[in-house]
């Protein structure tokens, strides 16, 4: 079982930097507990969905297409 990830304040600030999000000083302490828990759960879901039996699954979000008969519009 992979170790539960710990997010340091510096790591939170790096994530914000990657997102080009100017995080106000002190915000990393506010969001870190929830972010760490959600990332932990998201990584667990990613491991599950990476399993061989789910290889054929495509994401639920897909492009929509115009109707074949444009006159229907």
């Amino acid at each position: 079982m992979p170790a539960k990830p710990y997010l340091s304040p510096e790591q939170v600030r790096e994530l914000a930097h990657l997102a080009d999000l100017p995080l106000a000083r002190g915000r990393e302490d506010v969001i870190m507990p929830t972010l760490a828990a959600w990332i932990d759960d998201a990584n667990a879901l990613s491991r599950k969905m990476s399993a061989a039996q789910h290889q054929e699954l495509v994401p639920a979000t897909v492009f929509t297409h115009a109707p074949a008969n444009e006159a229907e519009q």
């Binding site: 879901l45 495509v58 994401p59 639920a60």
Partner: peptide
């Protein structure tokens, strides 16, 4: 993370 969640929706 986001796309795995969207694949989970399909499942």
């Amino acid at each position: 993370h986001y796309l795995q969640a969207q694949r989970y929706r399909t499942l």
